[in-house]
């Protein structure tokens, strides 16, 4: 197989089966944004550090900017566009609004995906566990406190 020969990938994106022809060097971020027009996943540092491009693969947060698209064959992918139940926001999305945890908003899709994964694995995390989970997500606007408050509310826990 040569580098520019497309590779056929079948995966689930936000619950829908997608069969896509992707390039060998293509990142999952490029596939989501350019082929599926899922532009809610943001292009930030492109080196897997800032977290703005975080999506869930089989429930685990992954930096899609350094994830090979060809390698997601057979996997389940969730993006920010798939978080809400139709019109109804997820409890975490709602908590982010209620706690004014959104400022410029560019990091928010990645933040929400990382925290969604945390809350799915651990229903009732401590503040410290929330902060540790966010070690791969940078926000330059908020100073994080209102985000952690929101995550605690979504987890049904009062402020520690």
């Amino acid at each position: 197989m040569t580098a520019d020969q497309p590779i056929s990938v079948t995966c689930t994106v936000n619950g829908e089966t997608q069969t896509l022809e992707v390039g060998a060097g293509e990142t999952l971020l490029q596939t989501l944004r350019r082929r599926l027009w899922l532009t809610g996943t943001k292009e930030g540092c492109l080196e897997g550090e800032c977290g703005a491009c975080t999506v869930l693969i089989d429930g685990a947060p992954v930096a899609s900017c350094i994830q090979s698209a060809a390698a997601v064959d057979g996997r389940d992918i969730r993006t920010i566009e798939g978080l809400s139940d139709g019109e109804r926001l997820s409890p975490l999305q709602q908590a982010f609004l209620d706690h004014a945890a959104v400022q410029c908003g560019f990091c928010i899709p990645g933040m929400l995906m990382t925290l969604t994964a945390l809350l799915e694995q651990q229903a009732s995390p401590s503040r410290e566990e929330v902060e540790t989970a966010l070690a791969g997500n940078t926000c330059r606007c908020t100073g994080y406190q209102q985000m952690v408050d929101a995550a605690m509310t979504a987890a049904g826990r009062e402020r520690a």
């Binding site: 944004r33 532009t39 292009e43 978080l83 959104v102 928010i108």
Partner: peptide, 21 residues
């Protein structure tokens, strides 16, 4: 009062279109 931002829902849904998008 702590009124919510008018672009908040679009931002938590991933619908907000930034310049880079």
């Amino acid at each position: 009062s702590s009124v919510q931002r008018s672009d908040g829902e679009a931002k938590v849904r991933g619908d907000a279109v930034f310049g880079a998008d």
